[in-house]
């Protein structure tokens, strides 16, 4: 670290922010909400209005996703050339490339509107709530709940003192809100959003 802090000699893996699709997929997986189906049309044909009946060879520009599609892996989501669906803002905000132009390496920007999304977007809140619910459904102690949480979100055991820090935070909220807030915070923390 002292000899080569910028990792010019590649002595370690360089830190990378997860790409847009990976952030989304990772949130779905650790919350247990992902619909793991594969294949099929990107835009569901059975949602009223998605198929333009006058010209059935074209899809309507304002396509809608059904609840199941909304929870599929990002690779199965539609990419609309004209404008990406607002409900997939997470992709747009985290540098999913514009489908109209060639793109070399993707940018990995760090901008406040991303942080606003992570803090406030219903998508993130919903995943946090689902994760919290599954923890609370476990018939066990809070200590083993935070242990399970660390394994699921960070893929590792708790570090010394970490569990106490998390539980101290949980105790400052009402019980119903507390676990969702803890899960939410971990889902938007650097350790979750970066690799390496």
């Amino acid at each position: 670290m002292e000899v080569d802090p910028e990792n010019r000699l590649l002595w370690r893996m360089s830190r990378r922010r997860l790409e847009a699709e990976t952030i989304r997929d990772a949130m779905l997986v650790v919350s247990g909400t992902m619909q793991a189906s594969a294949g099929g049309p990107a835009i569901p044909f059975d949602v009223p209005g998605n198929v333009n009946l006058a010209e059935p060879e074209f899809l309507n520009e304002e396509a809608k996703l059904d609840p199941a599609t909304r929870l599929r892996r990002s690779v199965y989501l539609p990419v609309l050339r004209k404008s990406q669906l607002p409900e997939l803002d997470i992709l747009n905000l985290f540098n999913f490339p514009d489908a109209n132009q060639i793109t070399g390496p993707r940018q990995a920007t760090t901008i406040p509107t991303q942080s606003l999304y992570l803090m406030n977007a219903p998508f993130v809140q919903e995943q946090a709530a689902a994760l919290a619910e599954s923890l609370l459904a476990m018939k066990t102690t809070d200590q083993s709940r935070v242990r399970a949480l660390a394994r699921r979100v960070y893929g590792r055991e708790l570090r010394p003192g970490e569990g106490e820090q998390w539980l101290a935070f949980v105790r400052t909220f009402t019980p119903a809100e507390a676990w969702k807030r803890l899960c939410h915070t971990l889902l938007i923390s650097n350790e979750f959003l970066y690799r390496g």
Binding site: R15, R17, T110, P112, Q114, S115, M119, N190, L193, Y194
Partner: peptide, 14 residues
């Protein structure tokens, strides 16, 4: 790392 610190700072900005 600057990148990680930048992300943390961007929450304050938000």
């Amino acid at each position: 790392e600057a990148e990680l610190e930048g992300r943390a700072a961007s929450f304050e900005l938000a």
